[in-house]
Amino acid sequence: MGSLDGKRAIITGGGNGIGAAAAILFAQEGAEVAILEIDRAAGERSAAAAEAAGGTCLFIECDIAQPEAVEAAVGQAVERFGGLNVLYNNAGGATAHDGSLVDMPLEEFWRTISVDLYGSFLTGRFALPHIKASGGGSIINTTSIRAMKGTSGADAYSAAKGGIVALTKAMALQWGPQGIRVNAIAPGPVLTERTRGLGMTEEPGAQWGGVRPGQPEEVAAMALFLASDAAAYVNGAIIPVDGGAAAF
């Protein structure tokens, strides 16, 4: 038996990196998985990998910063699977245009807020009624250790991820009594397609106290725990998965 047998899950940004690793792992552990991804090629590739691993996976092309698109995508997943138990808000990230607030293009700030914070708000808004109707479940948001310690060079990303911390705690307070746990994972430096493109390598980073970069699968393992019934007493938590980087 898998730890997610009988669960129906949505993973945003499931085409690459942590989201793709989570889609495969959730499917292997028995969940029916819907990947919401703006990149069609990546989403289809990830869904095929999850299916090849022995699971059930549906790809839905979706821009999570667009309310109508998110509502339709959530509805499509619920119609296909007959309910919803887990939402993993993984989509997000910064670009090379992020930096100091006095230097970054203004549109970069709003792009980051739209995808990271507003996108998590929207998916939660449309998924929550279905999770409640299915008898409860788990919402997993994605923040960052940049929201837990002062770092330089990504002010838009830090602001968006700080907002997710506050949103997670507010949601947990409101929905925990109704059987819906809301927690957030705070990854440290993780080697993904996106971060490699921004210059991250496998070498330990001085900015993170000499901690090695993590692998997507190491973060996906925490998402699996939070999605499962083993985390039934975990609500409102912000959990670093960072090799200790937030301690420095």
Rank of each mutant, 00 (worst) to 15 (best):
G55P: 10
C57K: 03
I60Q: 11
C62M: 06
C62A: 14
I64T: 02
A65K: 01
A65T: 05
A65N: 02
Q66E: 14
P67F: 11
A69Y: 05
E71A: 15
A72I: 06
A72D: 14
V74H: 03
G75C: 13
A77C: 09
E79Y: 04
R80N: 04
R80Q: 14
R80D: 05
R80C: 07
F81T: 02
L84V: 05
L84C: 04
L84W: 03
N85S: 11
N85W: 08
Y88D: 03
Y88W: 13
N89D: 08
N90V: 13
A91T: 05
G92C: 11
G92S: 09
G93Y: 04
A94H: 07
A94E: 11
A94D: 08
T95P: 06
T95S: 15
A96L: 14
D98R: 00
G99D: 06
G99R: 03
D103S: 14
M104N: 03
P105K: 10
L106G: 10
E107M: 10
E107A: 13
E107T: 13
E108N: 11
E108G: 06
E108V: 10
I113H: 01
S114A: 15
S114N: 15
Y118C: 02
G119Q: 10
S120D: 06
S120K: 05
F121D: 04
L122N: 07
L122I: 10
T123G: 06
G124H: 08
R125L: 13
F126P: 00
L128H: 05
H130Y: 09
I131A: 02
G136L: 09
I140A: 00
I140E: 00
N141E: 09
T142W: 01
S144M: 07
S144T: 08
R146G: 11
A147F: 08
A147K: 03
K149S: 12
K149C: 10
K149R: 15
T151Q: 09
T151P: 01
A156Q: 01
Y157K: 00
S158R: 08
A159S: 15
A160T: 02
K161Q: 00
G162M: 07
G162K: 02
G162I: 10
G163T: 03
V165N: 09
A166N: 12
L167Y: 15
T168G: 00
K169N: 05
A170S: 15
M171Y: 14
M171Q: 15
M171S: 11
A172I: 13
A172P: 11
L173M: 14
Q174K: 12
G176V: 10
P177K: 01
P177T: 12
Q178C: 03
G179W: 13
V182I: 15
